[in-house]
Simulated scan of single mutants.
Amino acid sequence: MAKTRPVRGATHNRASDRFNLPARAIDDDWRDVQPVVDDPPPPLRTSVTIERPRTIISRNASPDIPFDRSINPYRGCEHGCIYCFARPSHAFHDLSPGLDFESRLFAKPDAAALLRAELSRPGYVPKPMALGTNTDPYQPIERDWRITRGVLEVLAETGHPVTITTKSDRVVRDIDLLAPMAAKGLAAVCLSITSLDPRLAATLEPRAPHPERRLAAVRRLAEAGIPVYVSIAPVIPAITDHEVEALVARAAEAGAAHAFFLAVRLPHEVAPLFRAWLDEHFPDRASKVMAIIRSLRNGRDNDPDFHSRMKGSGPWADLLRTRFQIACRKHGLNRERIGLRGDLFRPPAGPQGELFG
């Protein structure tokens, strides 16, 4: 029996109109081989290109983001989440935010060494380092590349605070690092769970772990004493919004102490990708979904303005926010804020070790 093609999120591989890039072929295999009727096409292969940046810490000054620095060990993400706001970043590499984003990946194997060098600079002031702000630090290729693991080892060694956002239960692999850090007030983890329906999740996030595996990861992290958030992001109107209360309940049951949500955002090339995905998977309600999104985004597919881009506006956004807050109160979430310490930081030892420290 012929093997089936691994599922991908995007339904096409068009280039970005913002940079006048040419359209992308999905893969030479698709063009050179004509499959027999009813025979699945050859699989879309994942490639990984090594990237050698000069620095690894990214900075931002956005007033509506609760961190000012982050590390992204990878570019692109094999999870293939159709709504991912990081997709447009692939256009800067002359690649499509569509299938290229989830199949043509970049890895930064020098990340730990670069981080060590940057933390050693005179005058460095520690604040929580955010991992997983653009693409997932525990996507499938982390199993072999272990770049995120290397970054965590440096942060643990130096007593540097860290937050992690991921859709993968692979994060439990690093409990041996995270639990001692959490005991010192240095680590917190956020698991993103958008739906409890495995069939819907597989359509939205085709290569992310099953929702139950993510909930199991929440439990294991909490049992290890690591503060855990659950992110219900994004909430998609008329597709996942009915699950908000159930998601909050399951998060609390698994041991999460905090939760937050974001309504779906469709910046740049994400909007046409998402529309094509709706037409493919939900043609019966595609227009309704987009109408609600525009109603909470000030009449646009996407509202890029600070603050309102994270909260949404209008009756639909207000109702969702009220429902979420009631659910969190009912299940005892968000009662206290998680604060991470910066006073334990020690710069990495130099070539002479700590002889002159």
Rank of each mutant, 00 (worst) to 15 (best):
G353H: 10
L105F: 05
A224W: 04
L278S: 14
T165Y: 00
T166G: 12
Y124M: 07
M181D: 02
R285G: 10
A252T: 15
L44M: 05
R341W: 12
R173W: 07
K127L: 02
N334T: 07
I26C: 01
P35I: 03
P35Q: 06
A202F: 04
L44V: 14
Y229I: 05
T135N: 06
P234K: 11
E153V: 04
P283V: 05
P237D: 12
G185Y: 06
T55L: 06
P63N: 12
G159T: 04
A256R: 09
E142I: 05
F261C: 05
H160P: 02
G9C: 03
A156N: 03
I57V: 15
D94T: 05
N302D: 15
P267I: 07
A23S: 01
I326G: 02
L333H: 14
Y124V: 09
F345T: 11
D176N: 03
N60I: 11
P35D: 09
I175C: 04
G357F: 08
G98N: 12
E243C: 13
L155T: 01
A10F: 02
P304A: 14
R250N: 05
S89V: 01
P237L: 06
P6C: 00
S70R: 08
A107Q: 02
A23K: 08
L200H: 07
S96W: 08
R5W: 03
I147E: 00
I82T: 08
P126L: 07
I236C: 07
P304K: 12
V162K: 03
F261V: 05
R31M: 01
T203V: 03
K311Y: 11
L266E: 10
R220S: 14
G350D: 15
N13Y: 06
F274E: 12
A317G: 11
P53Y: 09
T322P: 03
A259H: 13
K3T: 05
P35H: 05
L262G: 10
N298T: 09
L178F: 02
I293R: 15
I236P: 00
A117C: 01
W316F: 15
S58E: 13
F345L: 11
L155F: 00
H242G: 08
R285V: 13
D318A: 15
A249S: 14
D284E: 15
R329S: 10
G159R: 03
I50R: 01
S62V: 06
I164H: 04
A238P: 01
